[in-house]
Simulated assay, not measured.
Amino acid sequence: MTLIAAQVSAYTMSAGRIGSIIAGIVAVAGIVIGVLALRRRTRRGSTAALTGGLIATALGIAVAATADGGLGTGNGLGGAFVAIALGLAATTLGGVGLRRAH
């Protein structure tokens, strides 16, 4: 038995797409904060980047786990994969920043 997900319009904002967008924004913010924290060697910025990265990764995993269908079905699966990758990058930057801040 095959499960076929209904296609949605390119402009329809599903819950998965919104979750992926939010996770992506948090991940990009974590990356920016992480880079700035590495430059300035601040513990506060590194902690913020680490936290943002973990939140973005967790949200991306949640969206990917609950997506019905594959890529291109409008459930935010592609955005979830991008958010996971960016979240891991932000987490890494935050971890390196914390290590250097000590």
Rank of each mutant, 00 (worst) to 15 (best):
S46Q: 03
Y11C: 01
T91D: 11
V96A: 07
A65W: 04
I61C: 07
R17E: 06
T12E: 14
N75F: 03
A27I: 11
Y11N: 13
T66K: 08
G24E: 14
L98N: 04
L3P: 01
G95R: 00
L71D: 08
G60A: 08
F81M: 15
G87L: 09
I4Q: 15
G60C: 13
G24N: 15
V35W: 10
G87M: 02
G76K: 04
S9T: 13
T47D: 01
I22D: 02
A65D: 07
I21Y: 00
A58V: 15
A64N: 08
M13R: 07
Y11T: 15
Q7F: 11
G53L: 08
H102L: 08
M1F: 04
A23Y: 10
T57I: 14
A67L: 11
I25Q: 06
F81H: 05
V35P: 06
L36G: 11
A15R: 12
R17A: 05
Y11K: 10
G45D: 10
R43A: 00
I21K: 00
L54A: 15
A15K: 13
R44A: 12
I61Y: 06
R41E: 13
S46M: 05
R39Y: 11
L98V: 00
G60T: 05
T73E: 08
T57E: 10
G94T: 12
G74W: 09
I22K: 09
A56M: 02
A80V: 09
G94P: 09
A101Q: 00
I18V: 07
G53V: 04
G24Y: 09
V26S: 03
I55Q: 10
L50A: 11
L36Q: 11
S46L: 01
G72H: 10
R100G: 05
G24V: 13
T2I: 05
I55V: 15
T51Y: 09
M1G: 15
L3R: 15
T92Y: 00
V32C: 11
V8K: 14
V28A: 02
L59T: 12
V26G: 06
R41H: 12
S20E: 07
G45V: 07
G87K: 10
G78D: 09
A65Q: 06
G95M: 04
G78Y: 06
N75R: 12
A83F: 00
A62H: 02
I61Q: 04
S20A: 15
A5Y: 13
V26N: 01
R39S: 13
V96R: 03
L36V: 07
T42Y: 00
H102Q: 13
T92H: 00
V8F: 05
T51S: 13
R44L: 10
V63Y: 12
S14R: 02
A29N: 04
L38P: 05
A58R: 09
